[in-house]
């Protein structure tokens, strides 16, 4: 079987198109590359959507934690504490079983126990909490002069937030937020190793990598392939966030711009 045929057969296997049966023996390099790459669709899906929705919620959470009102502050603090203080691995398990027990109550909760929605919700909460902490830290380090200037101009409420607080906060938080994005993508690999089932063997990249490793009993091929894909994704994220960083800091003299640096934050 030629390689293009394999790509046609298995390229979209992870989302259920193409050949139904996974290869069972005589694994070629091409098959491993294709299937693991097709699993990356899920990793990118989870990462991208959790990041997008999480961003909005994280800003709200950070503002809540900074709020002088107890009713807003306490829930945000607890939310952040719970999701940052416990392992993501356990959160996935817990989330899955909660969704599973919700299932009989109402057909509305039917799709929650499937990975595409349930895991996304857990991941969304998790990344919101982590990013909220980053944004909160940035919020605390906004130069006092900036907000004083806003007060002096008579800005308050929404315009003050939109034009002064939010851009400065984003600018200060951006390097740390880039790391958060990278590690969010890394943590998407946990999903199919927790409670969430991979129906009809539609799994993510690590799922297929470990499938090959189990079948061939040779970890030295599939995992490096997986590593290569993830390094590519990481480079892509650094590139995109770097462009955003440049735009956020475009008003500063070029020496004063903070450089993006990859710092470890690792598993959650």
């Amino acid at each position: 079987m030629s390689c293009t045929q394999t790509i046609l057969d298995y390229g979209l296997r992870a989302i259920g198109y193409g050949e139904r049966l996974l290869p069972r023996s005589d694994f070629t390099l091409c098959q491993q590359f294709t299937l693991i790459g097709s699993g990356m669709i899920w990793n990118i899906y989870f990462g991208l959507f959790a990041l997008m929705f999480g961003f909005c919620f994280a800003v709200a959470l950070a503002m809540g934690k900074d709020s002088p009102r107890v009713l807003l502050r306490k829930p945000s603090e607890w939310f952040i504490f719970i999701f940052r203080g416990s392992p993501l691995f356990i959160q996935f398990f817990f989330g899955y079983f909660v969704f599973l027990s919700l299932k009989p109550i109402h057909p509305m909760f039917e799709s929650l126990s499937a990975a595409w929605l349930g895991a996304l919700i857990v991941l969304f909460c998790n990344t919101s909490a982590y990013s909220a902490e980053i944004f909160y830290g940035a919020l605390k380090s906004i130069p006092k002069g900036d907000t004083e200037a806003a007060d002096a101009y008579g800005m308050s409420g929404w315009p003050r937030f939109k034009r002064i607080v939010f851009p400065t906060m984003l600018r200060l938080a951006w390097p740390a937020y880039t790391n958060e994005a990278i590690f969010l993508f890394h943590s998407t690999t946990l999903i199919f190793f927790t409670g969430f089932p991979a129906r009809q063997q539609r799994g993510d990249a690590l799922y297929y990598a470990s499938y090959f490793a189990d079948k061939t009993f040779n970890p030295f091929v599939p995992y490096p392939i997986l590593a290569m894909y993830f390094i590519l994704v990481t480079l892509l994220i650094i590139g995109v966030f770097g462009i955003a960083n440049k735009r956020l800091n475009r008003h500063l003299p070029s020496q004063a711009r903070p450089k993006l640096r990859l710092r470890p934050q690792i598993i959650r």
Binding site: S187, F193, L206, A209, I231, I266
Partner: peptide
């Protein structure tokens, strides 16, 4: 540091 640790 560049690769998901669970893979490792």
């Amino acid at each position: 540091r560049g690769v998901p640790d669970i893979a490792f």
